[in-house]
Each structure stands twice: as C-alpha cells, then as structure tokens.
Simulated assay, not measured.
Amino acid sequence: MTFKKINAWFHLWLGLASGIVVFVLGITGCILVFEQEIKSMTSPWLHAEKPDGGKYLPPSVLVNSLQKQVPGKEIESIWYHGEGRTAHLNMHESDSTAYVNPYTAEVVALVDHEDIFHFFKDGHYYLWFPKEIGHYVTGWGTLIFFLLLISGLILWWPKRWNKKGRDQSFKIRWRAKFKRVNYDLHNVLGFYSIILALIFAFTALMMSFTWFNNGVYWMAGGKNKPRLEAVSDTTTNIRSNVMVQVDKAWHKGIHEIAEHNPLEILMHFPEKASEAIYVCTDMFNGTWRDVYLDQYTLRELPASNKRVRDEDLASWIRRYNYGLHVGLVGGLPVKIIYFLASLICASLPVTGFYIWWGKKKKSAKKTKPRVI
C-alpha cells in the first residue's frame, strides 16, 4: 500500500470518528465568537449611564448597595467593565449575577448567570457531557482534527502545478454537478481555512491537555518554575477591615498597576485571613495580568504575573493562547474572519461524509451481482 493510500485511509476513518465533535465545536464556535457583541445588543443591564461629573465608585460602595437589596448574601468578587458599562458582582451560592451602575451604585438587574451562551459553552467545552467525560471527548476530538488537517493538506496538494491542477485545487466549480461542488467545498474551502483551523486546534489543545501545554512551553524555551502560593502575612495587621483594604487595592490596581484599560478591573475578595486580594487587570487583546496583593500591606506578592512585555517567548505563548483561540487579537474584522473559518470547519465533516457515502454507494453498485 502506497503512502498516498495510507494517508487517504487515515484521513477517512479519523474523519468519521471525529466528525460529530468537529461539527459541534465549529457551530458553537461560530456563535461564541460574537458572544460579547450579541450580549451588548440584547442585554440592556450591561450598560450604565454616566451622570454629569460622575466618577467610578469603589467596591465597598457597590457592595453595600447590593447587600441592602439582597441581605445575607456573601459577595465574592466584582468586575468593572469600563466606561459606560455596569459592574457585575458575584454572590456566594447564588444562581444570579448582580449588575450595578458603578457611578451611582444603583442595582440595575439581578440576572441568572446560566444564559443561552452557557448552553453553547457547555457544548463547545464538553459536548454537553458531564465535565469529567466531555473534557476528554472534545480534547481528543480536537487532536484528531489537528492530524486530519495535516493529512488533508497532503491529499489536497496538486499532482501538477499547471493550470488544470491549480483550478482543481483553488477554485470551486459552481456549475458542476452537486457531487463535484460538494467535493470542491471540502477540498478548496478546507485549504483556504487551514491556517486558522490549525490555530483553532493548536490553541484548543493548549487548553485541553497539560502535557501538550507543558510540551509547547518546553519547546519554546520555558523552564519549569515552582508554583508559588499567594498568601498574606497574618502577623502584620490581622485586624484590618477587609473592604477598606479592597478599596485601597482597587485604587492601586487602577492608578499604579494597570497599563491597558485601567477602568476594566476584576477583583476577588479574600475569604480567609491568609488569602490575598486578587486583582485582574491589563485586559487587552485577550490577555490579562493576575496580581495578588497582601491584604494587610497591599504588597504585590511573588505569585503575581509579570507584564506581558516582560515575559519570555514561552510564557508569552501561554498568555496569548486564549486571545488567539477566540479572535480577540484584532477587533471585529478578525472576529468575522474567525466566524467564517469556524463555519468552514463545521462544514468539513458534512461534506467529507457525503464524499465517503457517494463512494460507498458507487462501490456497492459495482459489486452488485448480475441476474442472468
């Protein structure tokens, strides 16, 4: 058996094995790429009108306002989303997310956090299986898809680079019979989307498998570092007021730590005396910076991330992986391109199955015995 036949066999059966996974990931990816834009248009509680002379209010003010409306609920975190947007607060053991005007402290809405996008994310991450099972189903399905892209490129490669060969590889014969059009949709569109499809698969594998993530990190020159715990020093000022310290950490995050989009900041409140105040800032192009502050001294702890510009190549790849996967690196034009590429990826199992089914029917006709 020649290499070409082995590769074709490999492409066929792995395609059949992973087809449903790839189709679901592609369709849900099309929807999720515009999640924020769709939410912005359909969810009025995400927007906040800024009054004349209005200024951002610190976390303690928004927390106090919310606790008056939902007494007894413990608030875990707050996320300021920038100018003209509400801040959202997460409550412990609650199905609702609170949206509060950061200029007036008015509680705008209490919304169930399991919206329609939660359904699509569950399909994209776990194929609607339980998390423990679905994580591996989508992960290994993505790995198979990655291998299929390579084998597909080999199958696509023209035998001859003359005009006929180029036309067959780069053009869709729209006026041909449906069977030929379907073949071209699989072959030609698969080629045009292959770079982005490889990016989708590669970045997904980085998030799915620790061994793959660590392997890429090592090949990029990264060195294993001990995991540092973010722990506050309880011997310094254990009687300090937590929300007073959170307000100070918020002010420090906006005015001293943040370099990009300083008004977009996420904070998680410490629940224990030894926990640090978590500050997430520099949300830019799909990356962010995790900063841990001692809740008593507000000293930045060693467990905090460096600024992206100070990272080595291996850490830079890890930090930008999510942004590359979801198309946050170039604004709306890139998202539109990602949408089209994801739609093509979803179509490949469908067109590929039809190619296989047509050959199977043709083969069955040839082997059908003649009646004498």
Rank of each mutant, 00 (worst) to 15 (best):
A201I: 02
S60N: 12
R307G: 04
H47C: 05
T236L: 15
F339Q: 12
L332S: 13
T236S: 13
R227H: 14
K360Q: 15
W79R: 14
Q245P: 05
T203R: 05
E74F: 07
P226D: 12
V246T: 12
H11S: 06
L340I: 15
K163S: 06
E259T: 14
S151V: 09
F209N: 04
H268Y: 13
I317D: 05
W13T: 01
M41C: 09
G123K: 01
W9C: 03
N64W: 00
K55P: 06
G286E: 02
F191M: 11
S60C: 14
L301N: 11
A303K: 13
K335Y: 03
R166S: 03
L14Q: 00
G53P: 08
G352F: 03
Y99M: 01
D122W: 12
G54M: 02
P369W: 09
M1E: 13
G139Y: 05
L343M: 15
K4W: 08
I116D: 06
A87G: 04
C30G: 11
E300L: 01
I75W: 01
G327A: 04
V329N: 10
P102H: 00
M243W: 00
S151D: 12
V242R: 03
I78K: 01
G54T: 08
K179F: 03
M207N: 12
L324Y: 04
D95S: 15
G331Q: 12
L301Y: 07
G152C: 10
I372Q: 15
E229R: 05
G139T: 06
I38A: 09
I336G: 10
I199K: 02
L343C: 11
V21Q: 03
V61W: 00
A17L: 11
T287D: 05
K306A: 08
I27G: 04
E271Q: 13
W79F: 09
H135W: 12
V108W: 03
N162S: 06
K272C: 06
D52F: 01
Y126M: 06
A346K: 01
S274V: 07
